[in-house]
Design a binder for these strands. Structure first.
Length: 326
DNA sequence: GTGTGTCTCAATGAAGTATG
DNA sequence: CATACTTCATTGAGACACAC
């Protein structure tokens, strides 16, 4: 305890004999203020603990505590060592928890909500990847409108969803990572009259029947305001439905025109999805306002949910992005 | 077998507290 | 105020495990 310590280099204290039990002891000593109590916490005898403290003093070359009648008081050196030791112990506890959480993240059930476009664009590729990387995670996907997904999120029906935060909900309850605009395409059946002539315009389209979401829906409002902004009349004959199946059936069997998410249009055209034989009349004719990856501010995601959430965020190119309000 | 490290037990010392 | 008691840290002796 007399010579001045050399300038510490790598593993200095370990080479001088500092052990992990020393760190546990000094941390316990800071909390208890008594060597005997610290010894009891470590399940060693009081004299053993007393020796260990003396060893630490020898290793560090400084006095770590002063004795008094009802225990000991740490010196500034002892306090410093104890605080560091507590940090290291806390770090190890955190590491243990992380490892358990990582293991838990390998299994579990995740319920994801999504509006139609992102369900195809983001959720399906994510689920496909998760099947390989996390085969023990079971995934449920709910495809619905944003307002209903927000309700489901609040009611714990979904763990998170891809969509928008609409209406008069309390936005402070949500966390939203903005992903981007949702492009819409206009689809018609194969052999539709408008596919035969020169390239169709929106003005040509409004003369036909349209299949739109019910009044008040975001898609319908977007379409209507876009047409009005172009100085065009609104379609006179509209079939209102929220059903994608009915929309595709109407488009396939009639001359109706329907705006659908571009991802849906691509799926139908390239994959003959749902058996629909349709073509895109106009790609990205409209764009619905940006959608987001939405979770609840106050509810932490389960490890398994976090795996899927992170994978979707990466798929959407959101890695490293901060939270945004939507 | 020897040396080293770590532990426990028992004895001892130091200091505070209670009591007459 | 003196003494006995209590609490806590320290020290010495010895046991045990392990590496060389």
């Amino acid at each position: 305890m007399s010579e001045a310590p050399e300038m510490p280099d790598r593993d200095y204290l370990v080479r001088r004999g500092l052990r992990f039990s020393h760190l546990r002891l000094i941390a316990a000593l800071k909390e208890s203020g008594q060597i005997s109590a610290a010894a009891a916490r470590m399940a060693i005898s009081q004299p053993a603990a007393s020796r260990m403290v003396a060893e630490m003093e020898d290793i560090l070359g400084v006095s770590l505590y002063t004795r008094h009648a009802r225990g000991v008081t740490l010196t500034r050196y002892g306090e410093r060592l104890a605080v560091r030791a507590q940090g290291m112990l806390q770090g190890l506890d955190d590491t243990a928890r992380e490892i358990v959480e990582m293991e838990r993240g390998m299994r579990g059930t995740v319920s994801i909500g999504a509006v139609t476009g992102p369900a195809l664009d983001l959720v399906l590729p994510t689920v496909r990847k998760a099947r390989v990387t996390h085969p023990r995670i079971s995934v449920t996907v709910t495809v619905d409108t944003s307002d209903r997904l927000a309700e489901a999120l609040l009611a714990s029906g979904v763990d998170f969803y891809i969509g928008r935060i609409l209406g008069d909900v309390d936005r402070s309850k949500f966390q939203a990572l903005s992903i981007g605009l949702e492009p819409m395409s206009l689809i018609v059946r194969v052999d539709h009259p408008l596919t035969r002539g020169p390239e169709a315009t929106l003005r040509d389209c409004v003369a036909y029947d349209w299949v739109l979401q019910p009044h008040g829906g975001l898609q319908r409002r977007t379409v209507e305001s876009h047409l009005m902004a172009q100085g065009l009349p609104l379609p006179q004959k509209v079939l209102s439905t929220a059903s994608l199946m009915l929309t595709l059936a109407a488009v396939t069997q009639t001359n109706a025109i329907a705006p659908v998410a571009k991802a849906v249009a691509d799926f139908c055209i390239q994959e003959q999805g749902l058996g629909a034989r349709v073509v895109s009349l106009m790609d990205s004719a409209f764009a619905i306002p940006p959608y987001s990856l939405v979770s609840l501010s106050e509810r932490a995601l389960s490890p398994a949910s976090m795996v899927l959430f992170s994978t979707i965020a990466a798929e959407a190119g959101l890695e490293g992005r901060g939270m945004a309000t939507d």
